[in-house]
């Protein structure tokens, strides 16, 4: 496992004056409501530990008020932590001085916002170029790089328009272009697609996945939409009331929810389209004529293959065609439809 790009350790955030004063009580387990009632402080985050491997999409999911937007703002310190460390490539963002922090924001991490946060007085071109202008680059260089990204997000015909003249989806493409133009290692996306219509959102997800296969950024993506989380996340973390509930690959979360909260969340997920056979296969062998199901096949596909072959069992094969396990119709059916309870 590669060294994580972002490692968050023991992160606490308490809003309100002198949050440190009540920190010990929170460490001892005081809840969000109790803290508000007795001390008038708002608990933002409680003991967050998280590692984001490089070049992966880490989704952070939760309902409103769960602290997910607070968490992402700690990574570029738009919000300063009450306690804990945010290590990016081994450097603690929480401990940076003003100049270092600015350099970090200019070159290493950029952000895409839920409501776009474009500058209404700048054209699309100048919006995309904003980060480069802030870096103080020469105008010809700014122009060159900005043009490339305007083209990459498909807005070359709108470069001289103003954000107010564009639809929501196009505005967010400007936002994405602006974030990518500085060529950062880390892309922070705060509910970036939540304000868009479902169809546009789907397009934007595709665009992001396309860009990611090519660019290989480390992306932290905040969302409250489970389908979005499962679709684009390499890893998913679930927050609730400022605390971390579960982290793992999408299919792990769906198959083994950590508690009732997560179980409730994932109960309507179409597991047949999400989970791959290796998660449920069992050791063993079957007759040679059994249908072969390659590693990585989704459950729905596997079930179809078995029923087409009218076989009770299939063998799961690796890349060389060697059988490494078996999977039965019953297992497939069970994995797809049975209501999952949190594992004890």
């Amino acid at each position: 496992m590669a060294e994580p790009m972002i490692r968050i350790q023991g992160l606490y955030k308490i809003f309100g004056a002198a949050g440190e004063a009540v920190l010990p009580m929170v460490r001892d387990g005081m809840g969000k409501q109790e803290l508000l009632d007795t001390h008038g402080r708002v608990l933002g985050l409680r003991d967050i530990n998280m590692s984001v491997p490089p070049r992966c999409i880490q989704v952070v999911m939760g309902l409103s008020g769960s602290g997910k937007s607070t968490l992402i703002r700690h990574i570029n310190r738009l919000i300063a932590p009450t306690a804990g460390e945010i290590l990016v490539d081994g450097t603690n963002v929480a401990g940076m001085d003003g100049v270092t922090l600015r350099e970090f924001r200019r070159h290493r991490a950029s952000m895409v916002f839920q409501r776009f946060a474009l500058m209404p007085h700048r054209s699309v071109r100048d919006n995309v170029a904003y980060g480069l202008t802030v870096q103080g680059l020469q105008s010809t260089e700014v122009e060159k790089r900005a043009s490339r990204w305007i083209e990459r997000v498909g807005l070359e015909d709108f470069a001289d328009r103003y954000p107010g003249e564009l639809s929501g989806g196009m505005q967010q493409r400007v936002g994405l272009g602006r974030a990518l133009a500085t060529d950062p290692d880390i892309l922070l996306m705060d509910e970036a697609f939540s304000a868009l219509d479902p169809l546009i959102r789907y397009d934007m997800q595709n665009m992001l996945l396309d860009l990611q296969t090519e660019l290989k950024k480390t992306i932290v993506f905040i969302t409250h939409d489970l389908d979005e989380a499962l679709r684009i996340g390499d890893n998913v973390a679930i927050l609730r009331d400022g605390g971390m509930v579960q982290q793992g690959r999408p299919q792990d979360i769906v198959l083994t929810p950590a508690d009732d909260y997560v179980a409730d969340f994932v109960k309507d997920v179409n597991r047949g389209k999400l989970v791959r056979v290796e998660s449920i296969m069992k050791p063993g062998t079957t007759c040679a004529s059994a249908p072969a199901i390659p590693l990585g096949t989704r459950l729905e596909r596997a079930a179809l293959a078995l029923s087409e072959a009218a076989a009770e069992r299939g063998k799961v094969t690796d890349r060389d065609g060697t059988a490494i396990g078996i999977v039965s119709q019953l297992d497939l059916l069970d994995a797809m439809v049975r209501r999952r309870r949190p594992s004890p």
């Binding site: 738009l78 950029s110 952000m111 209404p120 802030v134 922070l188």
Partner: peptide, 28 residues
Amino acid sequence: DREVLEASDAFGASGWQRLVGVQIPLAF
């Protein structure tokens, strides 16, 4: 707009860059 200011911060704008590039033009 506070969100626009936050965006300008997120891209590493200095106080002066924020004033001249965002606040004054938008307040104009």
